[in-house]
Structure formats: structure tokens, C-alpha cells
């Protein structure tokens, strides 16, 4: 009994130490902290300060622009974490031989990747919580009506964006390429998440195309859950399929050195 306990304790200690270290290092990056943790809320606040955006509108189904922008800001936090912040860090770890260095120790370098993924996932969920809190507190946006459905959509969306970020790392040989590829993917993702035009207000054909992308589908799922409905299974399925494909691709293609 004691032996089993100490054995698992032993296995967990290094992973916890790696995660703790990576969190510390993340907190030392003011740029990443701003874009991931603060910017989505700032964007929501700026839009919320425009009076007409707070008014309910007939053609939005009786909701205001700011209502539609809460899920957008939530998705933006994930995009910032998964596509802007994470890929350059991971590729730099490979370039600088940090992963190699770690593979000479009893801890596998995958512990470092796991820590990075957990860290960025957690950071984007914290940022999402901040967006929801400010939306509710400052602009009276109703909290999601269907909370389990909203939480499920959030978790699936985070997983999908992180899988996409991991794929960017796997495909990029250097951290500079990762930054460039990440930026292109980031613009596409911002568009499909509805940063410029909320997915719900896109014209028919465009919306149907966007709904096939991971963030377009996630945006619809979040919006439905926010309105109090269970998110559509087809939207959730799109996110899950993308996550599975990207996850498999990144694991197969990732180069350790």
C-alpha cells in the first residue's frame, strides 16, 4: 500500500514541478499575459462602451451586439493562447535543445508539452471567465442559460484550438516559422470565430461554410448555450472531429529535435 502510494507520488512530482515552472515562466511574459488574459476583455469593454451595441435589436433576434460578442471574446482568448502564445514557445524549446536536454533525465520531454497545453488551456478558460464576468457586471449580458452545455462547448473549443496550435508547432521547423504560420492561422480563426462579423449575422452560404470550421462551429455552440438551448450536436461534432484530426496529426508529425 505504502509502496504504491510513494510510487505514484514519485511519478506525479516531476510533472507537477514542470507545470509549476511553466506557469512561472508564463507569468514572466507580459506580452502573452496581455493578449491572452486581458485583451479579450478589453475588446469586449470597448465594444460595450458604444451605446447602440448595448441595445436589443430586432434583426438579432431581440439581442444586442454585445450579447453576440461575448462568445467571440471567449473564443479570442483561446486563439490568443493556442495560436499566438503557445507555438513559438514550444518550437523554441525544440530549437534550443530544451526538449533534448530533458530526454536525458527520467522525465520524458512530453511532460513539457503537456504542461504547456494544460497551462494555455487553463489561461484561456480563466480569460473566458473574466470576459463573462465583465460582460455580466458591466454590460448586463445574461450569463449562459445552459451552463453544462456552455461548459462542454468551451472545453471542446479549447481542446480544438490547442490541437491546432500543436499542429502549427509540429509543422514549423523554427520558432520564426511557427510565429508566421500561427499568425496566418490566427487571422483565419479570428474571422471564423466572428471577430469581424459575428457568425450568427453572416449571410447564409458563408455561415454554412464557417460552421464547418472549428471556431465557427464552436461559436454557434456557445451562442446556442448562451441563449439557454443545448448546443447543436452537429456543431459539437464538427469541433470534436477537428480536434481528433489535428490532435492525431500533431502527435504524428511532431519532431523532438
Amino acid at each position: 500500500m505504502t509502496a504504491t502510494l510513494s510510487a505514484t507520488g514519485q511519478a506525479r512530482r516531476p510533472a507537477a514541478a514542470v507545470l509549476r515552472t511553466e506557469i512561472r515562466l508564463f507569468l514572466r511574459e507580459p506580452g502573452a499575459l496581455f493578449w491572452v488574459m486581458v485583451f479579450p476583455t478589453v475588446l469586449l469593454t470597448v465594444l460595450g462602451l458604444i451605446p447602440s451595441f448595448r441595445e436589443d435589436q430586432e434583426d438579432l433576434g431581440g439581442r444586442s451586439v454585445i450579447d453576440l460578442y461575448v462568445p467571440v471574446a471567449v473564443l479570442l482568448a483561446m486563439i490568443m493562447a493556442g495560436l499566438q502564445a503557445m507555438p513559438p514557445v514550444l518550437t523554441a524549446y525544440r530549437e534550443r535543445g530544451i526538449l533534448r536536454r530533458m530526454s536525458t533525465t527520467p522525465v520524458r520531454p512530453s511532460a513539457l508539452l503537456t504542461a504547456q497545453i494544460v497551462l494555455h488551456g487553463a489561461a484561456s478558460l480563466c480569460s473566458a471567465a473574466l470576459v463573462l464576468a465583465v460582460g455580466r457586471g458591466a454590460f448586463g449580458v445574461r450569463l449562459p442559460g445552459q451552463i453544462p452545455g456552455y461548459a462542454l462547448s468551451l472545453v471542446l473549443a479549447v481542446a480544438c484550438v490547442l490541437a491546432l496550435g500543436a499542429t502549427v508547432c509540429a509543422l514549423s521547423r523554427t520558432s520564426r516559422i511557427a510565429t508566421a504560420v500561427g499568425s496566418v492561422a490566427y487571422l483565419v480563426m479570428m474571422f471564423t470565430a466572428g471577430v469581424w462579423v459575428p457568425v450568427q449575422t453572416m449571410p447564409g452560404l458563408l455561415r454554412r461554410i464557417v460552421e464547418c470550421t472549428p471556431l465557427g462551429a464552436a461559436s454557434q455552440a456557445l451562442d446556442q448555450a448562451a441563449r439557454g438551448d443545448w448546443p447543436g450536436w452537429s456543431h459539437l461534432a464538427v469541433v470534436v472531429v477537428w480536434t481528433a484530426v489535428l490532435g492525431a496529426a500533431s502527435t504524428r508529425l511532431f519532431r523532438w529535435e
Partner: peptide, 17 residues
Amino acid sequence: TRLLGAQLQESELQPKL
């Protein structure tokens, strides 16, 4: 890995560590 320690050529650590 538990009984062998290695110092690699040109390996770095996280810059802010």
C-alpha cells in the same frame, strides 16, 4: 536516465528560468 547524467553540447534552458 536515473544512473546516467548528461551534459549536452549546445543545449539551453528556458531563457527566463
